[in-house]
């Protein structure tokens, strides 16, 4: 199945980003295709390289970057990002800023869109 994943919440404060990550890893292991990952609302904070969590904790931004390095399209909404001070300069690698049109294409092309957030 072709899946798209939306993440609405920021890192650490909320479990959405962790749940989405584990869901995606499990889906890939099961042989599903990830059409794309879209960060919206406070979700845009998940991929800033300015975060520096304690070393014994997971590094959420690096985790997404590593997933992006496998070829999965990871998109941060430009409108949501600009509102929150997230710009190209602070993004981790393998993640891109683009518009809501990308979310639209994911919703159209994916068999299922799975949302993580409140």
């Amino acid at each position: 199945m072709k899946l798209a994943v939306c993440i609405y919440e920021g890192p650490y404060n909320h479990e959405a980003s962790d749940s989405a990550y584990h869901f995606i890893k499990a889906a890939i292991d099961k042989g599903h295709e990830i059409r794309g990952i879209f960060f919206y609302h406070d979700g845009v904070y998940n991929v800033t390289k300015l975060m520096e969590p304690p070393q014994d904790d997971r590094h959420i931004a690096n985790r997404w970057s590593e997933l992006g390095a496998t070829g999965i399209d990871i998109v941060v909404c430009i409108a949501a990002a600009k509102r929150r001070g997230i710009v190209d300069d602070v993004l981790v690698d393998n993640v891109r800023i683009s518009g809501l049109g990308q979310l639209t294409m994911m919703a159209i092309e994916a068999d299922r869109m799975v949302t993580f957030g409140d």
Partner: peptide
């Protein structure tokens, strides 16, 4: 499903609807 104020979900969600309306859906 959320109240319009108190969180930004509904407001930013409105932006998604207006953009998506321009597409073939």
């Amino acid at each position: 499903r959320n109240a319009p104020h108190g969180t930004i979900y509904v407001y930013e969600g409105l932006e998604v609807k207006l953009i998506m309306a321009a597409y073939d859906a």
